[in-house]
């Protein structure tokens, strides 16, 4: 496959993935905060096609009820069937991806200990994680752009200050630094503030590497022959920045965005997993996975691990995009090569 085609494919795969995530989150069977206390820790509901008599039917779920003898376990009664509709209308009139006939329930990924549908929460949580990653990437790249181009253009002490600062940041283990910074801030915060804090911390620590990269590009393009040539045509600094230097940064910024997004999403997941990021009841893949630690094996509630699958898929797709974009920091016709006519 040609390089641009591969890039296009990778980027559109990512776009489709998150569009699906967003679309399904919008049409999720339940709200992310809706609790079904009577169905706490229910396993994933099976969608069936064959009824107990062995007859094939339209997809249906069996009626689910708590087992009277042992709390926490559930019994399916397939004598009572509820049809499942793709893109059906729920009771409140919302369009829903998979809609069980009332009063049936359909927990595709099971429920957590509060009886919240993990499928719906995974989708919403994915959006929270994705949003954190995107906003943090944008902020970090903005900081990197400012810092890198200032250092690269001005040289002298601003360059020294920024270079040493980024070196310092990169000489330290990121997660430790992140936790230390987090320690200085209030632990209990409203969800929105927690989100903002996570974004701020991640981008504050993450801008160093792209900034160094951009500084290098600015510096090298400042010394390029074509910049000197343009000065020979009487070009001023504004023209040089606009026409010759910043366009080169665009490609680098794009590639860096693709590299940083999955990294930052993972940092958000780690932070939330450790209990320092997005807070309950707002879901994030990190907070959802943190409950797994104690429940996964002890209770055999393996369905709590579903967010991990979505997370892995997201990172996988993002990784592909990152690789595709990194190939891009070259002009379309290939770098100028030494050829004889």
């Amino acid at each position: 496959m040609t390089r641009p085609a591969w890039r296009l494919q990778a980027v559109s795969a990512l776009a489709i993935w998150y569009a699906l995530l967003a679309g399904f989150a919008w049409m999720a069977p339940y709200s992310w905060r809706e609790q079904h206390r009577e169905f706490a820790s229910a396993p994933p509901t099976a969608i069936r096609f064959v009824d107990p008599t062995g007859v094939w039917r339209m997809p249906f779920v069996c009626s689910l009820a708590p087992a009277p003898d042992s709390p926490g376990s559930y019994r399916e009664d397939c004598a009572v069937r509820h049809d499942v509709w793709l893109f059906g209308r729920a009771q409140d009139g919302r369009m829903v991806v998979l809609c069980p006939e009332q009063p049936g329930v359909l927990f595709l990924f099971g429920t957590d200990e509060l009886g919240r549908d993990i499928f719906s929460r995974s989708l919403a949580g994915g959006l929270v994680t994705f949003a954190t990653g995107v906003v943090a990437t944008l902020v970090a790249l903005f900081l990197a752009f400012l810092g890198g181009s200032l250092a690269g253009l001005l040289g002298g002490w601003p360059d020294l200050l920024i270079s040493r600062g980024t070196e310092l940041l990169m000489a330290l283990p990121a997660l430790y630094l992140l936790l230390a910074l987090r320690a200085a801030l209030p632990i209990q915060t409203p969800p929105l503030l927690a989100f903002a804090l996570a974004v701020a911390l991640i981008s504050l620590l993450g801008w160093a590497r792209p900034a160094r990269l951009l500084r290098g590009v600015v510096m090298s393009s400042r010394g390029e022959g074509y910049v000197l040539a343009a000065r020979g045509f009487g070009a001023g600094p504004v023209y040089l920045l606009r026409k010759h230097i910043f366009p080169r940064l665009r490609g680098v910024l794009g590639a860096q965005a693709a590299v940083l997004l999955p990294q930052f999403m993972l940092v958000e997941v780690a932070l939330s997993f450790l209990g320092l990021g997005v807070a309950e009841p707002l879901p994030s893949w990190g907070t959802m996975l943190s409950s797994i630690q104690y429940d996964l094996v002890a209770d055999r509630r393996s369905w709590l691990g579903f967010p991990a699958i979505l997370l892995t898929a997201s990172i996988l797709i993002s990784g592909r995009v990152a690789r595709a974009m990194e190939l891009r920091s070259q002009p379309a016709g290939g770098a100028p090569r030494e050829t004889t006519p």
Binding site: G225, G234, A332
Partner: peptide, 29 residues
Amino acid sequence: VQLVLQDATRALNPWWSGLTLVREPLDLL
């Protein structure tokens, strides 16, 4: 007074097409 720089590979912005490159001095001056 026009200078034709050493090393034509580096003196031409590799992202620009031939016409844009030749037009650049006119755009500026």
